[in-house]
Design a protein around this nucleic acid. Structure first.
Length: 921
RNA sequence: GCGAGUGUGACUGAGAGGCCAAAAGUGACCGACUCAAGAUCGGUUCUCGCAGGAGUUCGCAGGUUCGAAUCCUGCCACUCGCACCA
């Protein structure tokens, strides 16, 4: 096996380097890997499935291009190298023990580039060992200077097309790391979302007291504020104005676009019973409440007891203490199914005793939802719906009443992987790709409608993604990557520099030899868009490259796992639409399922992975390939299970042995041989259709298991002492080629051994030959097969050893009945039709029974078989006579064949067409 | 929570109104060849049946139909995505 692999690899070394030619092209790409760790079998499938497709189309005579490169932009390797540098045990164990990086190399991982360099070498080595038919001349990484020039060109167009805008943006931020944090950087709180609050500014003496709210419109119903008397607040100068907030809030505000200087402490108690003012609600008192959390927004809240259950019950609680009796809820919203004070109704209906009741959250949610969905402000407050008022009052406050926005998480705490607390920070000068642009969306949606998507179910998800996509922060401060051409302080973020590189592949091997400085925007404009420009150097070379690009582009299919639908796969459509003309737009996408390992989710961080290289060593490349493409269709999730993989290897060995045995066979022309070849045509056709639809599993079922099961019957049917017949030589050649895309190493070896010409990788794909199919022959073999099954099933039940078997074929009149029934449109009236015939009527009840039996039988047979039977006018008697020797050998008993009409045995009456009566004695 | 998808026999998985007790593979069991095998070959593998048949199954509960694994409704479970991350 190893020798076989080595031999094939040697022959393939340059075999898949592909250049434009006369033939029609087929260009497929896979999302390039981010080489920050070793490949596991899940990665293996991602690249092997496209390889099977590539090999298939290559054999069908297409000029196939399957390129590969490495995506090394972004921040992860920076983090990894830092962790390794600081001696992080977990990281070191992962790389040293799981990925088996040699000690000396690991030491060099303090340089992030070493990591990607190390693993991209490993990727190429392992991919090659898998037999991937990649044109490696085109390999590049995304930090190559030439590629950076390409990205600059891309962004120049995006910028000029008005797709990139600058803005401020709230992000999760860790002050300890001094960096924004993504989901994967979080220890805790990965579900938390950033929520936008409006700070309502109440005047107190010469200061503002901001109260953060999601419902600014309820200002009209404010009866008081709540402060926590046990908390020490601060007075701070915020953007030059004096504010009273919690200490926590002061720190948060400093991250959110405000200059904050803390002036003095203000104990909560000193705020209690103070009177504050807001122009929209007048003077209100400040009341004490222990539920007020200083770490939530500003740390002071406004109270709307008519509409907020919490406020209602807190007010009730303080009033129970005998004070503040004069404060009454102020209603401002009318909601169907609720009275004047919805909060009161809800609290009373739920029989809430005090503010510590755990049901309070749900109750709050209920009232809020009801009011938001169907509430309307009272006429004296404008009569708007709550939905409208929330917006309009919010902006009114910001415009006229000193309010501003404050961001806070909806769930806390949020903790960074470094252990530090995470806050919301407003990032400035952030660049955005304007995916929210409706015109751009429409352009992409229109193109999507014309694309081929596999499997078709993913279309809905793409459509929804396009619809839902918002602006994307596309620049970063840290990581590897290309700088934004017009603002070099920023790096282009990794999901935004990997969207149109499929075009780069088409000429990547030429670009390599260019001085990056020569790769001006004008050069790329010429190469990819055909825009001429007077000052192009090296024109001849560029023109040739332009031709190559035009030959390959657009790509035919892009392959990727389904988790990339909502970002990469959709992004790349946007970018293509923004830059390329219609004729260069992508044609299709194939979306993969995910991988499981022995039933559990594969995950490098949990150590639950099986390295691809180990799999190759243990099972051999062909086994790994066949298992990965054959255990489930590409878009289904697959489960790597060692026992199944092991048996896959046995199947390949069986195939090898069968083919080897074929070669020794002499010539023998007979029905069985013709039958085998006839059946083969069907398998060729079905396997071909399956691969055209990317159904690798289905193709394998046809190309492997179906042929194998034919072989079983074939061997059984051969005369005694004969090992094989003339059909085998033809089958051999076809079979090797059918399996070559899936198990290329084995097939390359067999092809050579059986005298095939050249590489099987380039051998012509078998074509089903209609003239070799013989439906009648297949029908009679089918009849024979069914009859054998019946004989066996009877023998098993009666448990006697028969001394003779008699097959009674159905008499002619039953055939006539069968035919009439089979072609009758209405099976209910068919008896009447048949009974019109004088001859039939005379047979009486026998006809009636036969009709019933035929109806049942016809329902049970495959329609195609029945149809063929009607056309064939088969002589069953002759079929059985011919196979008599075979049946006798199989059953080890004397066999007689008679027409049922001539038999006196009671069983003979049961004979039907395609179902002879069987008499065992 | 929202969006998309999936639920079939011990397992992986075909099947998309009558061909369905439901392909193929795996596992298990029984034979054969063997000193032996994780080898190879043949058979069995929902229940019942001494005549090729009958009965109960395709996440759960209803419904449509002469007839449902397949169509409709509701429920439950699982997978993926929900963004500044490859």
């Amino acid at each position: 096996m190893r020798r076989l692999e080595e031999a094939a690899l040697k022959e393939w070394e340059h075999a898949f380097e592909s250049d434009p030619g006369e033939r029609e092209k087929f260009y497929l790409t896979v999302a390039y890997p981010y080489p920050s760790g070793a490949m596991h079998v899940g990665h293996g499938r991602t690249y092997i499935v496209p390889d099977v497709i590539a090999r298939f189309w290559r054999m069908r005579g297409r000029q196939v291009l399957y390129p590969m490169a490495f995506h090394v932009t972004g921040a992860p390797v920076i983090g990894i190298s830092k962790r390794i540098a600081r001696g992080d045990e977990k990281a070191i164990r992962l790389y040293r023990d799981l990925y088996r990086v040699p000690e000396e190399t690991l030491k060099e991982f303090v340089n992030p580039l070493t990591i990607v360099r190390h693993f991209s070498e490993e990727y190429q080595r392992v991919m090659t060992a898998c037999g991937l038919s990649i044109d490696w001349r085109r390999r590049f990484t995304t930090v190559d200077p030439q590629y950076s020039k390409f990205i600059e060109w891309q962004w120049k167009h995006l910028g000029e097309g008005g797709h990139v805008n600058k803005g401020a943006h709230p992000v999760r931020f860790c002050p300890q790391c001094d960096n924004p944090v993504g989901d994967h950087d979080l220890l805790e709180g990965d579900k938390a979302e950033i929520v936008k609050y409006v700070m309502v500014m109440f005047q107190w003496k010469d200061s503002f007291i901001p109260t953060a709210t999601l419902r600014p419109e309820t200002i009209y119903g404010v009866t008081n504020l709540w402060v926590n008397p046990s908390v020490t607040y601060v007075r701070a100068l915020v953007d030059g104005t004096s504010w009273i907030v919690s200490r926590e809030a002061a720190n948060k505000l400093a991250l959110q676009d405000h200059s904050v200087t803390i002036v003095e402490d203000i104990p909560g108690t000193s705020l209690v019973d103070q009177i504050v003012n807001h122009p929209l609600c007048g003077d209100v008192p400040v009341l004490p409440a222990t539920f007020v959390d200083p770490d939530m927004a500003s740390g002071i809240v406004m109270s709307v007891p008519a509409h907020a259950p919490f406020d209602y019950i807190a007010l009730r609680d303080v009033q129970a203490g005998g004070r503040y009796k004069d404060i009454q809820p102020v209603a401002l919203i009318k909601v169907p199914h609720y009275g004047e004070f919805p909060a009161k109704d809800a609290v009373e209906k739920a029989k809430i005793v005090d503010q510590n009741d755990p049901r309070m959250d749900a109750l709050t949610q209920e009232v809020y939802s009801a009011e938001f969905a169907s509430g309307r402000l009272l006429e004296k407050y404008g009569g708007e719906t709550v939905r409208q008022a929330r917006e309009s009052v919010g902006s009114l406050m910001i415009d006229s009443y000193h309010s501003s926005v404050m961001y806070e998480f909806d769930n806390r705490p949020v903790v960074c992987r470094c252990g530090g607390r995470v806050y919301v920070k407003i990032l400035h000068d952030q660049w955005f790709l304007q995916y929210s642009d409706t015109a751009w969306k429409a352009q992409v949606a229109a193109h999507l409608a014309e694309m081929s998507l596999v499997p078709p179910e993913v279309r809905a998800e793409f459509e929804r993604t396009i619809d839902w996509l918002k602006d994307w922060a596309c620049t970063r401060k840290v990581g590897l990557g290309t700088r934004l051409p017009w603002d070099p302080d920023w790096l282009i973020e990794p999901l935004s520099d990997s969207t149109i590189y499929m075009s780069y592949y088409t000429i990547a091997h030429h670009l390599k030899h260019f001085n990056p400085e020569e790769l001006t925007p004008e050069t790329f404009d010429f190469l990819f868009l055909g825009k001429d420009s007077p000052n192009l150097k090296n024109r001849d070379a560029l023109e040739m490259m332009r031709k190559e690009f035009e030959y390959w582009y657009p790509y035919d299919y892009r392959f990727s796992a389904k988790d990339l639908i909502s970002n990469h796969l959709t992004f790349q459509l946007f970018h293509h639409a923004a830059i390329f003309p219609k004729k260069s737009m992508p044609r299709g996408m194939v979306v993969f399922g995910m991988g499981l390992l022995e039933g559990a989710k594969m995950s490098s961080s949990k150590g639950n992975v099986f390295l691809l290289e180990d799999a190759l060593r243990e099972f051999g490349a062909d086994t790994v390939r066949m298992f990965l493409v054959g255990s489930a269709e590409p878009w289904q999730d697959f489960d790597w299970r060692n026992d199944l993989v092991y048996s896959t290897r046995k199947q390949i060995e069986r195939f090898w042995n069968t083919i080897e045995e074929c070669s020794g066979s002499g010539s023998l022309s007979s029905d069985v041989n013709l039958w085998l070849i006839s059946r083969l045509q069907l398998h060729i056709q079905k396997a071909t259709e399956a691969l055209e639809r990317f159904q690798t599993r289905q193709a394998l079922q046809e190309a492997f298991y179906s042929i194998e099961s034919d072989m079983k019957w074939y061997r059984r049917r051969l005369p005694e002492g004969v090992v094989g017949g003339s059909a085998l030589r033809e089958l051999q050649s076809v079979w090797i080629r059918l399996l070559a895309p899936v198990i290329p190493f084995t097939c390359e070896g067999l092809w050579k051994e059986t005298g095939g010409e050249g590489l099987v990788s380039y051998a012509p794909w078998p074509v089903a030959d209609k003239s070799k199919t013989d439906p009648n022959l297949e029908l009679s073999e089918d009849l024979l097969f069914r009859t054998m099954e019946d004989i066996e099933s009877i023998r098993k039940i009666i448990q006697i050893t028969p001394s003779s078997i008699t097959l009674c074929t159905a008499p002619a009149w039953k055939k006539a009945v069968f035919a009439t029934v089979a072609s009758a449109p209405d099976k209910n009236t068919v008896i009447r039709e048949i009974m019109k015939d004088e001859q039939m009527r005379r047979r009486g009840k026998a006809v009636q029974d036969t009709v019933k039996q035929c109806i049942t039988l016809i329902h049970r047979l495959p329609p195609a078989l029945v149809e063929q039977y009607l056309m064939a006018d088969m002589d069953e008697m002759a079929v059985f006579q011919k196979a008599r020797e075979f049946i006798e050998r199989e059953c080890s008993v004397r066999v007689e064949i008679v027409d049922a009409a001539e038999s006196t045995h009671a069983k003979a009456a049961a004979a039907l067409p395609l179902k002879p009566a069987i008499v065992m004695e």
